[in-house]
Write a protein that binds this DNA or RNA. Structure first.
Lengths: 198, 198
DNA sequence: TACATATGTTAGCACTTCTAACTTTGGCAA
DNA sequence: TTGCCAAAGTTAGAAGTGCTAACATATGTA
């Protein structure tokens, strides 16, 4: 993994470090990640990152931001093939949520369990709003509305919490610890339907 | 906070360190916690903890275990005043869940987002099962059953994920970041009802 | 009263994040 | 084409971390 390079200048160290960081966040978890490890992986000295990032947290923030971008695309892809506002579309959105969390648990955890410094980052909040917007517009369509009004928010939020909680319980392996065998597609569909019922 | 003591022996350093650790986990978060800080708070040298714990992780594990105990008591208290298996009992259980998460976010995060070493700890898993059992028996009662069968598990799990996700979104302040104003009691009751409907 | 053991200490190693001061190099202006 | 400046690397080191080894002290029991 430790890329030995011949040239003094790396080429695109910033991108190299972000990828190394992402990798490490997945392998060891966001809290176990170390700048030194990332440097070793990128094949540079431990001082090099500070030409591109203010500190460790900023490296993690960038990984989180890029993760949110991938997350957004995944969600868009999930609703695209379906008629907007159908149970199929909304259920599939939930699946995409779970898929992102389980394929990138480190990044998912990072993006949602951010430290004090990260959590009031403007861009991060904007990305969060945009991502949640995908669900909101589906629910609006489900309710036959063109605007995101109070009712849309009220019906969307519990769906989010259910899927968000499911994501965390899966990646924290609470389901396996408690020997819970789940039929995920059925579980998601049935309870999405219930939460959308009167 | 740094307790200066006159005697060479602390008295009950183990308990002192656990309390200092709990405090720090709340103040700085589980990942920001340091053994050194706990030592300063307890007024002992940085080597002292290793007479009582194998390592840093074991200190956190103890805090998590004691937290799970408090969590259990809170849940028992929440259902006690109600007829078992009623919507009141189940809703109030959800409230207890949220209350624990929001009053002890550090410990809550610690207990559920455990590291590799913690997560296959026998006692921790047993505590998790016992805590989940409180919900399971309520759902069994709701369904008019005396055993925890497949149907009970199927109906209980989505309730857990919804409340668990809500807990995390609240403590990670996603709700405030997205300017979501919630009527928590109504939201919990209505959606618990929906998840329990056909 | 004696001393074994539990529980504290200090010293120090290997590691971390981050800064300061130095070095290399690519690209642009003369 | 040359020369130099800024960007982006380097090494050295400060301050802090987890943890161990070797030493010190108090306590409970024989």
């Amino acid at each position: 993994m430790t890329a030995k390079r011949s040239n003094y200048h790396h080429g695109d160290l910033r991108a190299g470090l972000v990828e190394a960081t992402r990798q490490l966040v997945e392998d060891k978890g966001p809290d176990r990640f170390s700048v030194s490890d990332a440097c070793r992986a990128a094949g540079v000295s431990t001082a090099a990152p500070y030409r591109h990032f203010n500190d460790r947290d900023e490296m993690l923030l960038e990984v989180a931001a890029q993760g949110m971008e991938r997350f957004y695309e995944l969600m868009c892809d999930a609703v695209a093939p379906h008629e907007p506002g159908t149970l199929d579309a909304i259920t599939n959105l939930g699946h995409a949520y779970i898929r992102f969390a389980t394929t990138e648990p480190g990044v998912f955890r990072l993006a949602f369990g951010l430290t004090r410094e990260h959590k009031d980052n403007e861009d991060m909040i904007a990305q969060g709003k945009r991502n949640y917007g995908v669900l909101l517009s589906q629910i609006a369509a489900y309710l036959g509305k063109t605007e995101i009004d109070e009712e849309v928010l009220e019906r969307a939020f519990p769906l989010w919490t259910m899927v968000h909680g499911l994501a965390f319980l899966l990646i924290d392996e609470k389901t396996t610890a408690l020997d819970l065998k789940l039929d995920l597609p059925v579980m998601l569909r049935e309870n999405t339907r219930r939460l959308l019922s009167d």
